[in-house]
Design a protein around this nucleic acid. Structure first.
Lengths: 339, 339
DNA sequence: GTTAGCACTCAACTCTTTCGAGTGCTAATA
DNA sequence: TATTAGCACTCGAAAGAGTTGAGTGCTAAC
């Protein structure tokens, strides 16, 4: 439907705008070496592209700026997959070659490398705890009345929580209880733990523990009360470098959304497998409607367990960012596969 | 040296400026109910206060603004200790009455409540790990080749790290090794662990482990490589609400300092016992020289183990903030005492 | 179909004016 | 002698006018 010349001009404008953040005029385009048409011709094409909704003007005599529809078209049809630059390549390899063996470490490093390379804000949703299974429960006594409960999952994730041992519970009973639970619950998906805990405790009530309700309450509280916090954010201050965020009020509203871990988690959790791009208004959260969010998922045993994302202005370096995310999600998936 | 009227006027100006962030003129002061002098009189006093260095003008015909020397004098001589408002009182009690039993939880909640109540940025330096002692080392095998090492301190702090079990080390040997280490190292201050680890390993080299160097390297790596990260920050976005930080460049430079955990840790670590106030240029870090930093320390068994701090503009609500910090550090100290 | 030419638009910048909240100084007052 | 009224003065902030320049759309010629 669009002529090749129109496509070409659209591409040039978007590419240019991504670099400069300035409206692009017909003369500037015509001066480019690859371009042989006169400014007037380009103006005509631009007028058409504008009436089709791909371009916008900031005021009646300004140069053109891509509209969200323009970005969407660009992303869907014009994007050339590019190879990572040697520098990007090297930086990422460097991170993944240092033999990390812990989920959190891998994620933390990934967040950092992503935001450093792109100057955008990177957000990673860590593996959902409920996709993992219990490896072991441990109770370590700190004093007569306090103890730490430690829960280790098959992915090496460690949850821990201190608690006061209630007077009603005999420490020896507690220990026995934990031993039994370990025997019976290893391999159980974390998400099923509360139910299974209830079942097991009920079944052994008479033998070991006098007051199952209390014991359950405390164990559950100690191990499962707070859903762990698995959002990692890097490079928040990078947003301040973008000219579209020179307004303090804008930054403030954006930051307050990023700070809400539940909101971010639910956004990242609802992403489909693979790369996904939300541009401006396509984002449901109003505060993010000046931004683009690019997400990629990573997997363990074929199952999607988390999401990595980049949040930046709408004029993102889409192709580079996509390559980076693809590479990183692959590397993460690969790293986790070996475990 | 200053007349009581001068003191009074200084106090009124600073109090007012703290509220409004606007230069204060003579007429505005004279209009106050508590004030019976004419604007002219006040102007004379203000001129004197300015030549003494306690006040400044933003331009030659502007109202007066406190200088850093003025704030310093105010803080040292004019500050009235005020009781916490019922609301503040209640909020803090609410946090500490919910029976928290874990260091991190206490600190996280404190950071949040501080920044919420004040609208400043709050920073807490958690208990130094090296001030604590080893309670237990645990190794939990995840698979044939991977394991999590867990280190629990007497304060309930849990450090953990996954690692690949090197081929050179027999899993059974590893277990024996850990048992022996537990027997010998419980109660050892964490800071001495690397040395003691070396010693113990050397002494038992022939009996259990073939290659002590390797075992040491891995254990040390697993347990002690990365100093844990014990800076907690809350309410960073609050800074955006202060009129003195309406400039993006300023915010950016401030944020990048706050992000540097080592810098912040070393600032907080070097604070003396009790409440301490650094105003503007008194801060060593240039990026913080538009701010005031108020710190308070908290203790465990009489020993100072951490610092809580508030970072805000120089025109802080000093008396309220001091009361809050005093109350909070007391509550923290009290909470930790019971453990 | 393309392009040169031209009138037109509008943000950004500069310059000027006006306004008012503030000052310092002097002379009158209690 | 300390206080105050009065007044000339200062300067930032806001509002308005003029200029510039990068851009446009449209028309007519190539």
């Amino acid at each position: 439907m669009l002529s090749t010349r129109q496509l070409f001009i659209l591409q040039v404008i978007i590419d240019e705008f991504i670099q400069t953040a300035q409206p692009i005029g017909s003369r500037a385009i015509s001066k480019k070496d690859e371009v042989s048409f006169s400014p007037a011709t380009i103006r005509n094409e631009m007028a058409d592209l504008e009436s089709l909704g791909f371009l916008e003007k900031t005021h009646s005599s300004s140069g053109r700026v891509p509209s969200e529809k323009g970005y969407r078209y660009y992303v869907d049809h014009l994007l050339m997959p590019i190879d990572l630059s040697p520098r990007d390549e090297q930086t990422i390899s460097g991170v993944f070659n240092q033999g990390m063996v812990e989920f959190e470490q891998v994620i933390q490093n990934s967040v950092n490398v992503l935001s450093d390379l792109t100057n955008y804000t990177s957000i990673i949703l860590g593996p959902e705890v409920y996709a993992t299974t219990l490896k072991q429960i441990q109770i370590i006594h700190l004093s007569k009345t306090t103890a730490v409960a430690i829960l280790v999952t098959n992915t090496g994730h460690v949850e821990h929580r201190s608690f006061t041992i209630p007077k009603e519970i005999n420490p020896l009973d507690l220990e026995k209880l934990v031993n039994i639970l370990n025997e019976r619950l290893i391999g159980v998906p974390i998400i099923q733990l509360p139910n299974r805990l209830q079942m097991e405790l009920t079944s052994i009530i008479d033998h070991y523990v006098k007051d199952v309700a209390t014991a359950f309450k405390y164990l559950k509280g100690a191990l499962l009360d707070q859903q762990p916090n698995n959002i990692y954010v890097g490079g928040i201050t990078n947003m301040l470098l973008q000219p579209e965020f020179s307004d303090v009020a804008k930054i403030h509203s954006l930051y307050s959304v990023i700070e809400q871990e539940e909101t971010m988690a639910s956004i990242l959790r609802s992403q489909d497998q693979g790369i996904h791009i939300s541009i401006g208004q396509e984002n449901k959260v109003t505060e993010m409607q000046d931004c683009s969010l690019i997400t990629a998922t990573y997997t363990l045993k074929g199952q999607q367990i988390g999401t990595i994302a980049l949040l930046g202005p709408k004029r993102m370096e889409y192709s580079r960012v996509i390559s980076l995310l693809e590479r990183l999600s692959n590397d993460m998936t690969k790293t986790f596969k070996n475990w």
